[in-house]
Design a binder for these strands. Structure first.
Lengths: 226, 226
DNA sequence: GTGATACTTTGATTATGATCGAATGGTGAG
DNA sequence: CTCACCATTCGATCATAATCAAAGTATCAC
């Protein structure tokens, strides 16, 4: 026994309902204050503070003090990917959630995953990119082809600028609702950003749901049919 | 809050040290009896039994009664993938494991992941396959090209027979030590099986470590250099 | 049948940690 | 400087669940 890294240490951090809810909220990619997270977690401020200290100590979240606020955020996309993986299992072996509900179906169609697009729409985009050989994916790695570079330029995303950053340009992130990959990395983030700028979609306040406008929906369809 | 599936329910199952050790042991892919798992978990038989009941109830493991033995196994590769994802985070933000130790480096080189090859060797194989366009991977999905089919036939794996099974032929599984993908699915399992049959490697008793023989190491090198 | 083995259940104990009220430490506004 | 606000720390309470001993159930060997 005691092979490999200590699973239980990390898992038990996620294993508390209050902390799990906080982490879910942080999956939106936004940095939230302790009070906001207390609300999300359904606990009092002192309790939330103690939880956040543990998460921070455990390396799952980072904290940035800004004036009298302290902003908490996920420690990285790796943590986000892990949370998606757990969500996947929870959904498949899950408690057979009785009524999916409208919020749930909206989440399945399009949502934020850390900072990029997930759900049916995210997977559809990823599929299109790989099928048209605009993107070459192997496992969690992914790389743009020359054609892909042109495609994104045409769409309006400045790939060259993104490449200067330390963060990987393309990543494949496993989607919990569809169980297939969607585009992550700085390119994934920039793409979603651009869709917001084009007014194709907007975020629903206080949730991970991304709502497409009728126009946006049509344009998106056109984009991935072309 | 209460977006998506219930993370904490699953995570808390993995969050207990005894259960985490048991699950780690099951990552070897073998089905183990309750007494063996009690040993792995470092707890008494009654305790282990209670843990196993919870894991089974939670859908993480399956149980098969055979005579007076009850064999427990991971519920599926999805659960295995989740455990690898958690391992990845645990390793990266980890408790700065002081001494990696020989066992650890052996695990990094080659180990069993559920039923296929993981570690440096597993990733090297996967890289070779995708680079030579023998395998086309996109996210967690992967598909053999015609060339790839020939390559595996040449190696000695009967692909056609594997395709009849319900289980997917190819999958990409994220490796916790290397953080890149290795080959999973029935093809991944059959490949490792064949390597054992060729005497290229054997399993170390009571652990996930796969030890390559000198001959096996050389042959493997040749295989992925060709 | 009897005894032995493999496992689960029950019940009681104990330890861990989640929770909140009250007090404390910083930060910004006036 | 003082007040208001955000957040953490402390202290005490309380609930959950991990643990094992002992008893119970089931299967196999003979």
């Amino acid at each position: 026994m005691k092979d490999g890294p200590d699973l239980s240490r990390i898992a038990s951090l996620v294993g508390d309902p209050a902390r799990a809810n906080m982490l879910s909220a942080l999956m939106s990619g936004a940095a939230l204050t302790a009070s906001e997270l207390a609300l999300e977690g359904g606990v009092g401020l002192p309790t939330a503070s103690s939880h956040l200290a543990k998460l921070s100590e455990g390396g799952l979240v980072t904290v940035a003090s800004q004036g009298r606020h302290r902003y908490y955020a996920l420690a990285g996309s790796e943590v986000a990917a892990m949370l998606e993986a757990i969500s996947g299992v929870a959904a498949s072996v899950g408690p057979r959630r009785v009524r999916p509900g409208p919020r749930d179906s909206a989440m399945r169609e399009a949502r934020i995953c850390y900072d990029h697009l997930a759900g049916d729409k995210g997977v559809a985009l990823f599929d299109h990119l790989t099928q048209k050989r605009l993107l070459k994916a192997s496992g969690q790695e992914a790389a743009l082809t020359p054609n892909g570079r042109a495609w994104f330029a045409d769409f309006g995303v400045d790939v060259a600028q993104l490449e200067n950053k330390r963060r990987p340009l393309c990543r494949a992130c496993l989607d919990w609702s569809v169980r297939r990959s969607h585009l992550a990395g700085s390119l994934g983030a920039a793409t979603l950003e651009h869709m917001f700028a084009l007014n194709w979609a907007r975020r629903e306040a206080g949730s991970r749901v991304v709502r497409f406008t009728p126009k946006g929906r049509a344009e998106f369809e056109r984009l991935i049919r072309a």
